[in-house]
Design a protein around this nucleic acid. Structure first.
Lengths: 244, 244
DNA sequence: TCCTGTGAACTGATTCACAGCA
DNA sequence: TGCTGTGAATCAGTTCACAGGA
């Protein structure tokens, strides 16, 4: 019944992660993942008083090629003005709308340890995202000070999430509890999960998952660093270096 | 002098992120990013008493195709035994060694707000990663309780990082301060950055950056959800839906 | 017989290069 | 003239399919 949809950006063709079969040809997930960067950058430019940018200037700023930016944006319509560029404010708004960011989103948070608390107090979530329910086995019954939310036990996830009509969940529980919590959220109607736990979640095809895994990120970067402490810079192992 | 190396998994060909030109043909960064998942999964299997797995079983568990796993591992040598599979413990160790995880890594942390504190107290970092220096403009002079580290001002980053020989940095400062902090770390010799700030950092070619951006992840997932609050499930916009 | 390692085929994303609009 | 939008070419990563070792 459940099939793995790993994301953690490991697949080259993350179209698997596209949960709903859309009409027409679907936009690849990799493009969708770039859209928030466009919104953020265009808004920032707009707020700095820059009204218009060329794909070239934007590329310079974001570190993506100009052609790719043009293609990404063009896949949703004609946003640019030839000879002129893109209107920062207008395109930011349009892309935000494509991402359904022109409405508020209630979010369910499971896990209120170090990570969960940092998430709950994160300044970057509002106004679009609002923690509307918190679950934690060990802190059950307590109250989250700033919001006054009562912390509920994991058993309550499914019903509470359904009651509130929540579609977005954040998993910040230990690895061993993550799959259970994910199942409960999905059962309650959640269709998108942000996963901080270091496990690959198995969810139905119509649920999207994104992994946030700083430890894995660190562990992959050390590949490019010195093999031994005190060593100077050194090239990493390649195909020429046989490990067997 | 500095060129943008965005990562945040936005590029299809993140070879740009490979900082050091290796001999032989280089392993694509996307493969490197999968290696920690192999290590984690194989270790977990090994600890559960499973001594051997086929690529098929591993694939089932990780949600990646068996062929891809075989190819990834084979690019570093012959790890498998034909007719038998892979030895969980042995391959976990070998891959960990390829990633240079068979040594400890000192890490510099910039920013001691919500995120920085959560990072400092994160259980998943040790024993491989150890926060060895903390910087924060506003908490300068204070002491981090659990480690006893004195919090230093950003101006001290470059010298302190160099003094300690630190190659890994974590940026958990507000967006506006991130680039300055990144520059100071790089100046001090840091060659890999984990960036929690919502900005694309500009770093020299020989520095790797990985982005951790939960807000961007949420903002991209809402694409697949209901356009308006209270709406039922709905297909996302496609090429057929012209936004212009 | 089982399962790895790997050429070859394929799929999908990025870049090139330019027609065409303002 | 400047810059978008987009076919065509290119490049990279994934999957197929199978030879061959244990």
């Amino acid at each position: 019944m459940t099939r793995t949809i790993p994301d953690h950006s490991l697949r080259e063709n993350p179209n698997d992660a596209v949960p709903i079969a859309p009409v027409g040809h679907p936009i690849p997930d990799i493009v969708i993942r770039r859209l928030p960067i466009y919104v953020r950058t265009l808004r920032s430019l707009s707020e700095s008083g820059v009204d218009s940018v060329s794909s070239e200037e934007l590329a310079e700023q974001i570190g993506i090629s100009a052609a790719q930016i043009r293609r990404d944006l063009a896949s949703f319509g004609r946003f640019g003005r030839q000879g002129k560029g893109y209107s920062t404010a207008e395109v930011a708004d349009s892309v935000a709308e494509i991402l359904h960011l022109n409405r508020g989103w209630d979010v369910a948070l499971a896990g209120f340890g170090n990570i969960g608390r940092a998430v709950a107090h994160h300044r970057g979530f509002p106004p679009t995202f609002r923690i509307a329910a918190i679950f934690d086995r060990r802190k059950e019954g307590r109250e989250e000070p700033s919001t006054g939310l009562h912390i509920l036990p994991p058993e309550a996830i499914s019903a509470e999430v359904r009651r509130l009509g929540i579609e977005l969940g954040i998993i910040a529980v230990p690895a061993g509890a993550a799959q259970d919590v994910a199942d409960r959220m999905v059962e309650g109607g959640v269709r998108a999960l942000l996963n901080y736990a270091p496990v690959v979640l198995r969810v139905p095809d119509n649920v999207v998952v994104r992994e946030v895994d700083p430890v894995a990120a660190l562990r992959s970067m050390t590949y490019y660093l010195s093999p031994a402490a005190g060593d100077g810079p050194d090239a990493p192992a390649t195909a020429g270096l046989r490990a067997g």
